[in-house]
């Protein structure tokens, strides 16, 4: 029972971080209807920019994070302006391919600037862990979970109650209709990419603080959450969080309790789950069901 509780608590905490990454996918999809496969690379850029400020420029860590955020916003806006802007009105696959092109280009730029050697932040979160009964939970994970939940709340408020948020949702729903009522799509897209890049940067910094930085393994965290984003529904913020937590839980619980099915089931479990869910509910658990017309 102790083991089970411990695994659940860890799964929840790590899952919250995955949820934050998943949120990046959802944000861009909600505003522009694009599945951004370069999410992992956006995370990597955020994490490395924070590394530049905190280690290379010797700025205190929290100040460095504060400096990273505007840079990340700028990167998001630049990517939208110079790459995704040309993709308005293009077929789905071209847009996906554009994000793949970005993914490869960004990996190249990061490798060029920062090399392939692993890098480390200064000690960010305290290494000690807190004990609640028999369960140990480290402050690192608590911080990660707390930050993730904080951002999720902000986004829920943003999309539900602010004008920009509503405008973004309208644009994602129907670009042409949005245009016809006087919404500047370009502005909306630019904003959404900037915000998504910012989210990704926060996710990247958290992961960097947990396991360190290197240019080769970051992209995999982005792809890891992809199935659960779809599980929740591409346009559902709570879906992303629940999906993220789900993947955190499977990663921790599956090897312990389904280990008899063979090793590595934790990598497969999300995909099998998402396949089953998608066959029953084609738009994910919380996704918006679209009514198609000819």
């Amino acid at each position: 029972m102790d083991t089970f509780l411990q695994l659940v608590v860890t799964g929840l905490a790590v899952g919250a971080t995955y949820g934050l990454i998943a949120l990046g996918f959802v944000l861009i999809y909600k505003a522009s209807g694009v599945l951004n496969l370069a999410q992992g690379e956006l995370m990597m850029f955020g994490a490395y920019i924070c590394f530049v400020f905190s280690v290379q420029a010797n700025i205190p860590f929290y100040a460095a994070v504060a400096l990273t955020l505007p840079v990340a916003l700028l990167i998001g806006a630049v990517i939208e302006r110079f790459f995704l802007r040309y993709m308005i009105g293009q077929p789905l696959i071209s847009v996906i391919m554009m994000t793949i092109g970005l993914m490869i280009l960004m990996r190249g730029i990061a490798t060029w600037i920062w090399g392939t050697e692993p890098k480390v932040y200064p000690q960010v979160f305290p290494q000690e862990s807190m004990s609640i009964g028999s369960v140990n939970i480290s402050y690192e994970y608590l911080w990660a979970a707390g930050l993730s939940i904080f951002f999720v709340l902000i986004y829920i408020i943003f999309f539900r109650f602010t004008k920009s948020g509503l405008v973004m949702r309208a644009t994602s729903d129907d670009e042409h209709a949005a245009l016809s009522i006087g919404i500047s799509i370009k502005k909306v897209l630019s904003q959404s990419w900037a915000i998504a890049a910012l989210t990704a940067a926060v996710g990247g910094i958290i992961i960097g603080a947990l396991v360190g930085l290197d240019t080769t393994s970051f992209p995999q965290y982005g792809l890891k959450v992809l199935p659960v984003v779809l599980l929740g529904g591409l346009d559902s913020i709570p879906g992303a969080i629940i999906g993220g937590i789900l993947i955190g839980l499977t990663e921790n619980l599956v090897p312990e309790y389904l280990g008899f099915l063979g090793g590595g089931m934790e990598e497969l479990a999300p995909y099998i789950l998402v396949l089953i869910v998608l066959i029953v509910r084609p738009h994910g658990l919380f996704g918006l069901k679209r009514i198609e017309r000819i």
Partner: peptide, 10 residues
Amino acid sequence: TALDAVSQSL
């Protein structure tokens, strides 16, 4: 590329 190793540690 694991983010945590709690189950292995346990």
